[in-house]
Every structure is written in C-alpha cells, then in structure tokens.
C-alpha cells in the first residue's frame, strides 16, 4: 500500500516536472542561417522559373502557330466560296 503511494507520488512529480520551466532560447545566429537558406532557395527557384517560362513560351508559340495556320486555311476557303458565288450570280 505504502509502496503504491510512493510510486503514485513519484509519477505525479515526474508528470509535473515541467512546471515552472523557463523557455529555452535558440542560437542568436539562427535568423541569419534562415535568411541564408531562403536566399539559396531563391537562387534555385530562379533557374526553375526560367525553365518554366521557357516551357510556357514554347507551348504558346506552338498554340499560336497552329491557330494562325488554321485561320489562314479557313480564310482561304471562305474567300474561294465567296468568289464562286459572286461569279455564279453574274
């Protein structure tokens, strides 16, 4: 019984051992390291962004070329049809 009381009291003390603790402070140079990591990642992102921009430009160029070719073909067909109908009219 007494043994049990000791054990319970010890467990309570351990569970409460964080009471009144002070907050630990990180290394004063930690912010400088964080900034350096951000800078490094910006550099890496720059290369990635350039690649992405290049890929987007290529896609846009292809889409525009296809659209231009199609519109030229449609315009040609429309002009031919119009000429034939005008000639037939006269």
């Amino acid at each position: 019984m007494e043994q049990n009381n000791f054990s319970e009291r010890w467990k309570e003390e351990v569970l409460g051992s964080m009471r009144g603790m002070k907050r630990a402070e990180p290394n004063p140079f930690l912010f400088t390291r964080i900034e350096a990591r951000i800078e490094k990642q910006w550099g890496r992102m720059g290369v990635w962004q350039v690649r992405l921009a290049a890929a987007v430009m290529v896609v846009l160029l292809i889409v525009n070329s296809v659209a231009l070719l199609r519109s030229n073909r449609t315009a040609g067909e429309t002009t031919d049809a119009y000429s034939i109908s005008t000639i037939q009219h006269y």
Partner: peptide
C-alpha cells in the same frame, strides 16, 4: 529550460 531540482525527473 527545466528547473535544476526537476532535471532528473524531467
């Protein structure tokens, strides 16, 4: 940050 008297228990 733990108080000295609680170090072992913590």
């Amino acid at each position: 940050g733990v108080l000295l008297e609680n170090k072992e228990k913590s």
